[in-house]
Nucleic acid binder design. Structure first.
Lengths: 215, 215, 215, 215
DNA sequence: CATGAATGAGTATTCATTCAT
DNA sequence: CATGAATGAATACTCATTCAT
C-alpha cells in the first residue's frame, strides 16, 4: 500500500510560458555555439537566468528540453505555412506551390543561422517516431493546400503527391542550409524548389495520362 | 590498386581488415538493438571478440567507430552507384537518371531494415562536416554521370543540377524508409523518383530558355 | 488585514500541539512504510496536511523531526515507568524490579509493531549524544525506584547497579522485538527479565560480601 | 592445449584483499572522524589510495562499503570468540562464561575508540535483517560453547538461555562503550558481566526447579 | 500564521581511455 | 601485437531550505 501519491509539481501558467521559452532559447543558443554534447544543464539554467532546480520544474531532463525546442519550432513553421495558404482567394496549383515554397524558403533562409542549428539539432536528437510525426504534420498542410487548387488534376493521388512534394521542398532547403558551402540566394533557391515541385507534378501527370491512355 | 598479392606481408593487414570489420559489425548490431547512447566501448569489444585495448589499436575512440561505420557503408553505396554508371555505352540523360535512381532505390529497399538502422544512426551521429562531405561525394558521382549524357543541355549548370537532383533522389528514398508507415514498392518509388528528377530537369530547362529568350 | 485583536490567545498553542503531532505521526508512518532515507520533507508535509513552509515553523529541519519523534515517545515511556513506581506503598527490591520490568515489557510488546518501527528508527537516526541522554533518563528512573526499596542492600552502588539493571531489561526487550523471529509471549519475556535482573543483583551482592569478607 | 603451467600471477586475488581492506579501513577512519553522512566516496578513495573507479570495482556503492566493513569485523569477533572456546579442555559453565565474557570485553575495550566507532556505525547503517543475522551468529557460538560445559543444567533451554546470555553480555559491553561517560575498567566490566550472566543462569535454574517441584 | 515556487549546493556514478604486462 | 585492471574527469539530478506573498 502506498500512502504517497507524488503529483508532478507544476509551475503557474503565465510564468510557465516565459520561463520555458527562456530555457529553450538559452538551450538553442548554446547548442549553436558549442554543440549538443557540450551543453550542460547548468549552462542552460545560467543563461536562461533561472535556478538549476527551477529548470527541472519545467522539464524532466535535458533530452526533454531538446525535444520540446525542436518540436515547438517545427510545429510553428508548419502552422505558419498553413496560415499562408489559408486566404480565401482561389489559386492555381502553381500559385499554391509558390506560396508554400516561399514561406518555407524565406522563413528558413531569413534566419539561416538559428535554423541551421535547429536542423542539425533535429538530426541529432529526434527519434524516428517523432521525426515521422513532424514530417506528417507538414504533409497534411501541403495536401490540404494543394487539394483546393482550382486546377488540381484528379489523376494525382493527393496524399502521395503531397508527400513527395514536401520531401522535395524540404530536401532542397535543407540542402541549402546544411550542405552547400555558401548559402544560396533565397530567390535562386525558391526558383529551384518551384522547378522541382512543378516539374514533379507535371511529369507525374504526363506519366499518369500516358498510363491511362495505353491501358 | 595493386593486383599483385604479396602473401608474406599481408597477414597483419588482412587481420586488421577483419578486426576492424568485426568491430564495425558489432557496433552496428548493438546500435540497432539498444540505441547509440546505450552502447559502450566494452560492449563493442566483447561482441567483436577483441580486447578492450585492441579496439584502440584500430579506432581512436568511440565516435570514430560510428563515423567509420557510417562512412564506409555510404561510400560503398556511392562507389556502387558510380560503378553502375561506368559502362562505356552512351546514354541519354533520362537513361542515366534511370540507372542512378534504380541503384539507389534497389540497394536501400533491397535491405530495408539494416539501411533504415544505418540512416537513423547517420542522423544521430554524423556531424555537419562529415554529412556535407558524404553528400558531396554522391553529388560528384551524379554530376559526372549526367555530364556525359549525350543530350545533356548546355544551359544547365552541372554542379547545381546534380546537387538538386541528388537531393531529390535522396529525399524520396529516405522518405520511404523513415517516414512512410509501410515501405512502398521499389518500382513505385523508382517511378516517383524518376518523375521528380526528370521533371526537375525539364522544368529547369524550360525556365532557363524562357529567361534567355526574354533577355 | 484584520485590525480587530482577537481575545483568544490559546489557539496557537493547541494548534501547535496538533500540527506537531500530525507531523510526527506522518513521519513515523512514512518511515515504517518506506524507510528513513526515502522519506522527504515534502512527503511528510503532504501527509500531515500542512504546507511545506509551515512544517518549518514547527521543526528546524528533517533531523529534528526524527529526533523529536523518537525522544518524545521514549521520554513518555520513561515517564510511564516512573509513574508506575510512584505509589507510596513500600516495596521490596524484587517487587520493584517486577513493576519496572512489567511496565517495560507490556508497553512495548503490547504494541509490538509500532515500537519495533520506533526502535529501528532510533537505531538509525539517534546520534550518540542523544542516545546517552535517553539512556540515562531511564537509568535515573530505575535508580530512584530501587533506592527506596525497603531491602536495598547498602553494599551495592545504586548508580552502577541501576545502569546494569536497565541495560539488561532494555537488551532483553529489544531482543524480543528486533532479533527473535517470533515475538515471545510477554509473560515469558517478563520471567526472563526478572531472572536476569534479580540474578544480577543477587550475584553482585554475593560477590560484594565475599570481597568484603576476604578483605 | 597448453600443458605448460604458467606461473599464474594472482595479483587479482591478493590485491583484491588488500584493496578491499584498505577501502574499509579508510572508510571506518573517516566515519570515526566526520560521521557517516559526511563521508563521501571520493574521500574514501583518496584516503585508501585508489582511484575513484577502482573503488567501484570492489564495492557496488557506499552502502555496501559500510555493510561489508561492519559485517566483516563483527564476524571476525564472533570467530575469535568461538576460537577462544575451542580448547579441548573440559570446563564448567562458570568457566565458559568467564572465557566468553573475557574475550568480548577485552577485545572491545582493548581498542575502545575504533570499536565505539564501529558500534555507532552499526546502529546507523545495519538494516534489521542483517542485525538479526549477526546477532544470531553470536548466539550460536554461545549456545555451542555453553552446551558442552560439564555442569550444564539439563533444565535450561540452550537456545533461549544463550540468546539471553548474549543479550546481557552485549548490552553491558555496549553500555560501557556508548553510554558511560568514562569507559570503565575492563576488569570491573568483566566482573559485572559475569555477575549478570551467572546470576541469570542461577536464577533461571532456581525458578525452573521451583516450577517443576510445584507441578 | 501559512504557503509553495524558486533555489543551488552537493555527490554518486559511469565509461572512455591508458599503459604495464 | 593484445590485453584489461586501473583511472578520474565530467555531469545530471535531488531535495532540504528560504522568503515573498
Amino acid at each position: 500500500m502506498n500512502l504517497i501519491v507524488k503529483p508532478r509539481r507544476k509551475p503557474s501558467q503565465s510564468r510557465a510560458w516565459m520561463t520555458s521559452g527562456a530555457i529553450q532559447d538559452a538551450f538553442l543558443l548554446l547548442v549553436v555555439e558549442h554543440g549538443y554534447e557540450q551543453v550542460s544543464i547548468r549552462d542552460i539554467a545560467t543563461l536562461a537566468g533561472v535556478g538549476l532546480g527551477t529548470l527541472y520544474l519545467y522539464f524532466p531532463g535535458k533530452d526533454s528540453i531538446a525535444a520540446v525546442t525542436v518540436r515547438s519550432r517545427l510545429r510553428r513553421l508548419a502552422a505558419d505555412t498553413q496560415a499562408a495558404c489559408a486566404t480565401g482567394v482561389p489559386r492555381t496549383l502553381a500559385e499554391t506551390v509558390h506560396v508554400l515554397a516561399r514561406v518555407h524558403v524565406h522563413t528558413l533562409l531569413g534566419e539561416a543561422a538559428p535554423w541551421r542549428a535547429l536542423l542539425v539539432l533535429e538530426r541529432r536528437i529526434t527519434p524516428p517516431g517523432v521525426y515521422r510525426e513532424l514530417y506528417k504534420a507538414f504533409v497534411q498542410v501541403l495536401r490540404d493546400a494543394c487539394a483546393v487548387a482550382i486546377d488540381w488534376p484528379a489523376e494525382l493521388d493527393p496524399e502521395r503527391s503531397a508527400l513527395n512534394a514536401f520531401a522535395i521542398i524540404d530536401a532542397l532547403v535543407k540542402n541549402a542550409l546544411l550542405v552547400q558551402d555558401v548559402c544560396p540566394d533565397a530567390d535562386e533557391l525558391l526558383h529551384d524548389v518551384e522547378c522541382a515541385v512543378n516539374g514533379y507534378f507535371q511529369k507525374a501527370l504526363e506519366r499518369s495520362r500516358a498510363a491511362t491512355a495505353s491501358a
